[in-house]
Simulated scan of single mutants.
Amino acid sequence: HAGGTEETLKRLSIPEFRKRISDEFKTNTDYENWVLNCGWKNIMITSVQTGSNKCLEGKDMIEISEIRQQSPENAAFDILIEEKGNVAMVIHWGFEEDVLQSMCHPLQMVGSDGIFGGKPHPRLHGTFPRVLGKYVREEGALTLEQAIRRMTGAPAQLMRLKDRGLIKEGYQADIVIFDPEKIKDRATFEEPLLEPEGIHVVYINGKLTVYHGEYTGARYGKVIRRFQSSKINKVATFQDR
């Protein structure tokens, strides 16, 4: 990756570099080697930019290598070159037992890094309803109150958001009204954009945004910027000098 995306893509066009990378996929443990750890079958393309490669979205690298009649590594190299590096993926790994154990830990918080575009990971639409439906109602891994705190107050505190995360006077009214007996995720790897069930009303910054499960079209969200005190600014200025 030295030199940025353009230099990376140039290297991927050089046969000796391609061979070196292909060999390291099989043995190198010095980095997060998903090919070695999980195998090509468990690496799935979720999003590309060009129309000619849209047919690859939602397919794993073994399927893609068969479609393109290439080895998985050469298919990966060529797709990256064709897409100028704009490729997103999902990797299947881990064990449900580990997730369940993590859910029970008192410091656990709920979040998602789902990426929009193509056929994304179902966590994009399903993370929070899945916790409430599966891990609270079905598995009993944590209580409803614990789950809500780990989705709201705890992460807001960690991120030092001074007026969010609690229903409290003077705080921004970000409120989700849902049915704890019905809420569940519906998104799957095959249909990742399916919306969850059981959410009735959503307020963002005190404004009605979802009503009876339907989006109102309102756009009341805003970028939250980190608060900087004058003391922090002075330290930063001194260090810059």
Rank of each mutant, 00 (worst) to 15 (best):
H1V: 12
H1A: 12
A2D: 10
G3N: 02
G3Y: 01
G4K: 06
G4V: 03
T5S: 12
E7D: 12
E7V: 05
T8H: 11
L12P: 02
P15G: 00
K19A: 08
K19W: 12
R20D: 04
R20Q: 08
E24S: 13
T29N: 14
D30Q: 15
E32G: 12
E32P: 02
L36G: 05
K41Q: 13
K41Y: 09
N42C: 05
I43W: 01
I43M: 05
I45F: 01
I45R: 01
Q49C: 06
G51E: 08
G51I: 05
C55V: 13
L56Y: 04
K59A: 07
K59I: 06
S65H: 07
S65P: 02
E66P: 03
I67N: 01
Q70V: 06
P72H: 03
P72G: 08
D78G: 06
I79C: 00
L80F: 11
L80R: 09
L80K: 11
I81S: 02
E83T: 07
V87G: 01
V90C: 14
I91N: 03
D98K: 01
Q101A: 14
M103I: 05
S112Y: 08
D113L: 11
G117K: 08
G118P: 04
G118Y: 00
R123S: 01
R123A: 00
R123K: 01
H125E: 08
T127Q: 06
T127R: 07
R130K: 10
V131K: 09
L132G: 02
G133R: 04
G133P: 00
K134P: 00
Y135L: 08
V136C: 05
R137E: 09
E139A: 14
G140P: 02
G140K: 02
L144R: 09
L144K: 04
E145Y: 09
Q146Y: 04
I148Y: 02
G153R: 13
P155K: 11
A156C: 11
Q157N: 12
L161H: 11
L161G: 07
I167G: 10
I167L: 13
K168A: 07
Y171H: 06
A173G: 08
D174C: 08
I175V: 09
I177A: 06
D179G: 01
D179I: 03
D179C: 03
P180N: 03
P180I: 02
E181G: 10
E181P: 04
R186V: 01
R186Y: 09
A187D: 04
T188P: 01
F189A: 05
F189W: 10
F189T: 03
E191H: 12
L194I: 06
G198K: 03
G206A: 06
K207S: 07
Y211Q: 13
G213S: 04
E214M: 11
E214H: 08
T216H: 09
G217T: 11
G217W: 09
A218E: 15
R219K: 13
R219T: 13
Y220M: 10
V223C: 07
I224H: 14
I224C: 15
R225A: 15
F227R: 15
Q228A: 14
Q228L: 15
S230A: 13
K231H: 14
I232S: 15
K234F: 14
K234P: 12
A236I: 15
T237K: 15
T237Q: 15
T237S: 15
F238H: 15
